[in-house]
């Protein structure tokens, strides 16, 4: 870990300005991912701006149009346990409790969860090439151990996955991300546009500008239906998804679905959802039409179909 300076701020605007003014600064909230990465010197910020004191970011409030506004600092535990979330957005609660451990969920925040970095093993070993960790050094995973890695939306620079669960549910719920930009103005980012694909710049996980601070995640009005999060993994808990399925299925068989563990972002193809009543294979044929798996992770394609088939069968059940 490199020595760093540390600052606590009271407002979102102050936080954004503090980070924007220093190219080596980063925000710190729960720290469940950032601090680990700093110990390994994968992240090397010279300055940390701790946002945990900012007022008003720790609440879950009703919005004018019947949705929910979730403050950036709301812990994963609090969000998953919220009565309104459990009642109206069950897929979100189920996704959150499928991730990490109780201790981590107590500390991890809503905004921080969106910003967790990939778990690609090559990203974690500073001796090995990784374009995400060290741009231009190459991608050791492309021809390496890629069983856990992405099958779609990849580039020849990076096949990392976004590792989280909560974001897969937020994607299927059509959430939006609210931010404060360094100049103090606010912006709203549709969830599908928040995470990037690796392309030529895999070091950049999302569309946030340096110094842009997430203040909230907003959920639109509840859409009813059966809410399912099915996570497939080698061990029963405390493991990242091989494939996960976040789905909301309506009584008439229509619905929405997003996949985790398959791409650099939560993977949803809205146009494919029209095929839901025809069954899983019809949906995934479109969702994964452009898949480019490796020899080690090609199983994720039939697995995604089978996982969705299980979800649809149980929703009917």
């Amino acid at each position: 870990m490199r020595p760093f300076t540390y600052q606590r701020v009271a407002t979102a605007a102050e936080a954004a300005a503090a980070v924007a003014g220093n190219p080596a600064a980063k925000f710190l909230a729960g720290g469940t991912n950032l601090l680990d990465l700093m110990k390994l010197e994968i992240e090397r910020p010279a300055h940390l701006v701790d946002v945990q004191d900012i007022e008003g970011l720790n609440a879950i409030e009703q919005t004018g149009d019947g949705g929910l506004r979730i403050g950036a600092l709301v812990s994963n535990t609090a969000l998953a346990a919220d009565e309104r979330v459990r009642r109206d957005y069950g897929v979100l609660t189920r996704a959150i409790v499928a991730g990490a451990s109780g201790q981590l969920r107590n500390k991890a925040t809503t905004a921080g969860n969106l910003l967790q970095r990939t778990r690609c093993p090559y990203f974690y070993d500073p001796n090995l090439p990784c374009n995400k960790r060290n741009p231009g050094s190459g991608c050791a995973a492309l021809e390496g151990y890629s069983r856990q890695l992405a099958v779609i939306g990849t580039s020849d620079k990076c096949i990392a996955t976004y590792p989280g669960d909560m974001a897969i549910a937020l994607r299927v719920l059509d959430a939006t991300v609210e931010t404060v930009q360094p100049d103090g103005t606010e912006r709203t980012i549709p969830f599908g546009e928040f995470h990037r694909l690796p392309g030529d710049a895999p070091e950049k996980d999302n569309v946030l500008a340096h110094g842009e601070l997430i203040t909230a995640v907003t959920l639109p009005r509840p859409i009813g239906g059966e809410h399912v999060y099915h996570k497939v993994r080698d061990r029963a808990s405390y493991a990242f998804a091989l494939v996960s399925v976040a789905a909301v299925i309506q009584p008439d068989g229509t619905g929405r679905v997003a996949f985790g563990g398959v791409a650099h972002k939560p993977w949803r193809v809205e146009a494919a959802e029209a095929a839901m009543p025809q069954g899983a294979a019809a949906v995934t044929a479109q969702v994964f039409a452009d898949a480019r798996p490796t020899e080690h992770n090609a199983f994720k394609l039939p697995l995604a179909t089978r996982a969705l088939a299980g979800v649809l069968a149980e929703a009917k059940g």
């Binding site: 778990r119 093993p121 021809e143 390496g144 080698d234 061990r235 029963a236």
Partner: peptide, 30 residues
Amino acid sequence: ALMEELVVDTRFGLFVNHDLAGYEVPVHLD
């Protein structure tokens, strides 16, 4: 039987999943 494996990267000559996130051992739920 079900999950433990140190994965060899035969290009670099090392066990690539060298932490407890990458090397999975059973948890209570298993």
